[in-house]
């Protein structure tokens, strides 16, 4: 039985009042799926019944559990999948040849939130390129504005809902351990990443020259002038032959013409034009 409209509206208003997070109509499944387990645990036959019960009472512990269940971070491991497939299949093998002399690879996730993106890259490198563990130096940096996100990212602790998102089951069992209701990335992978505070719109710290910069799904939050400034600063930290990854809905086109767009299958990445 689909969730009753009145109950869905009540539940999303509850979430909005308490967390400022807006759940649109497409999130009805999420509400029902996440709350079905909680409803059963609390002895209700359905999410509707749970909701009806909550409506009649002042805000309490059960209301808080409902809000918590609804407001988990929505990002995923291997987000969009194909950039990581291209990275593994084409770009890492290329960089292994190109950087054979220095035996160093520098990678920066410039807005890494709770860490899914750098952990994805770390697992992918650890699992797919064991040669990197002897004689190579991989500097994998994850920056974010939020202290809370950085604290979570450093811990490498993820909820069950989060490890369900995009993470292949074989990598989950290989690189995570259960810690109560949470899942923690194993030390060998956590140790591969250095997290640091960074305001993209402010002054940037000194960073090593990067082979890869991941700046995905963050430019969308800035106006065009700030996008231009950020892209200019990225040019400053990339090696001349380094590569930039943006989110699927983002581009350098009509913002900063110093970039060349490269397409490989479904994956688009950018490099600095030779004449820029």
């Amino acid at each position: 039985m689909p969730l009753n409209r009145i109950e869905f509206d009540y539940l999303r208003n509850l979430v909005r009042e308490r967390s400022a997070i807006v759940l649109d109509d497409s999130k009805e499944y999420l509400v029902e799926m996440r709350l079905m387990s909680l409803a059963r645990l609390e002895g209700y036959d359905s999410v509707d019944e749970l909701s009806r019960n909550l409506r009649g009472k002042p805000y309490g512990a059960l209301h808080a559990q409902v809000v918590d269940a609804m407001t988990t971070n929505e990002t995923s491991f291997f987000r969009d999948l194909h950039p990581f497939e291209t990275f593994k299949r084409e770009l890492v093998p290329e960089i292994l040849k190109r950087n054979e002399a220095s035996r160093t690879i520098n990678i920066w996730c410039a807005a890494c939130s709770s860490g899914q993106e750098p952990y994805t890259l770390a697992m992918l490198l650890h699992d797919g390129f064991p040669q990197l563990r002897s004689g190579w130096r991989v500097n994998l940096l994850g920056g974010d504005l939020s202290q809370e996100m950085l604290r979570r990212a450093r811990q490498g602790l993820f909820s069950q809902l989060e490890v369900n998102r995009g993470l292949p089951a074989p990598l989950l069992v290989k690189y995570f351990q259960k810690d109560g209701a949470s899942w923690q990335v194993k030390e060998e992978v956590r140790a591969m990443i250095q997290f640091h505070e960074l305001n993209l719109a402010g002054a940037w710290p000194h960073l090593p020259s990067m082979d890869f910069v991941f700046l995905r799904n963050v430019l969308i939050y800035f106006d065009i002038e700030m996008k231009r400034q950020i892209l200019r600063k990225v040019r400053g930290v990339l090696k001349p032959d380094g590569l930039l990854f943006l989110g699927g809905a983002e581009t350098t086109l009509n913002i900063d013409e110093s970039w060349e767009r490269v397409q490989s299958g479904k994956t688009v990445y950018y490099r600095i034009r030779r004449d820029a």
Partner: peptide, 18 residues
């Protein structure tokens, strides 16, 4: 593949994409 309940439509789509 393996999905733990509860999960979202996005999670199912992502697992199938894998």
């Amino acid at each position: 593949e393996y999905i733990m309940k509860p999960f979202t439509k996005d999670a199912l789509q992502e697992k199938l994409a894998l």
